[in-house]
């Protein structure tokens, strides 16, 4: 941008930061409605149970142990990301730990598929189980990308001694990311409760 022109006035600096935070909160609304479709599907199909199709054949529950492990990985990741965004001293180490744990959660999810006693065709429960966990894992990958970019930007900027980047802007990015990621983890908690406990 040709900012040398004498009459040209830059936009207020806080606009970019504010809009990112606002968008992150709205994105949480999108996420809520997205996964609400699966919550609805779960309870609707369970209540309807057409042709006794909620569970077909001998019902095998998914492994509670793996479920807890996945949830724990996500929960811890969410907690670390929450702290990383609020504690500039540990932001990189905590952010990296959050990324590793999220990666572990996604990985464990695919591990779980390998050891399930049922397939997607085993009725309504199986459909919702596979649909929800798979899209949740996809969402987890998106979250991983966001966390990685936020942390990587901080890391590179720190290495350069914040020569090119504005630390406030980067920390705001971490904050926006942590808002969405903790919300996402909260959805994961609901998912665990619904799929494993209800």
């Amino acid at each position: 941008m040709d900012a040398t022109h004498e009459t040209f006035q830059e936009e207020p600096r806080e606009w970019a930061a504010r809009s990112l935070t606002a968008a992150a909160k709205m994105w949480c609304g999108s996420l809520a409605f997205f996964f609400a479709a699966f919550v609805f599907a779960y309870f609707y199909l369970k209540a309807l149970d057409l042709n006794h199709g909620w569970t077909i054949g001998k019902h095998v529950s998914p492994s509670g142990g793996l479920g807890v492990a996945i949830l724990a990985a996500y929960l811890l990741s969410g907690l670390l990301m929450y702290l990383a965004a609020r504690r500039p001293s540990d932001e990189i180490s905590m952010g990296v730990a959050a990324i590793v744990l999220a990666l572990l959660g996604v990985g464990l999810q695919f591990l779980e598929y390998a050891f399930l006693g049922f397939g997607p065709a085993s009725g309504g429960y199986a459909s919702v189980f596979f649909g929800w966990t798979a899209t949740y894992a996809l969402g987890g990958l998106w979250g991983l990308y966001w966390m990685e970019t936020s942390v990587a930007a901080l890391w590179r900027a720190r290495r350069n001694g914040f020569a090119q980047a504005d630390p406030g802007m980067l920390r705001n990015g971490m904050m926006a990311c942590s808002i969405c990621w903790t919300f996402f983890v909260a959805i994961g908690t609901i998912m665990f409760v619904v799929l494993y406990l209800v």
């Binding site: 479709a37 609805f40 599907a41 609707y44 199909l45 309807l48 057409l50 042709n51 199709g53 909620w54 569970t55 077909i56 397939g119 997607p120 065709a121 085993s122 009725g123 309504g124 429960y125 199986a126 459909s127 919702v128 596979f130 649909g131």
Partner: peptide, 19 residues
């Protein structure tokens, strides 16, 4: 091979209509 919308294998046509 899931059956969200297939009545008879655990799904429901109403689920689609609602969503």
């Amino acid at each position: 091979d899931t059956g969200f919308f297939l009545p008879g294998v655990g799904g429901s046509a109403f689920l689609w209509e609602n969503l």
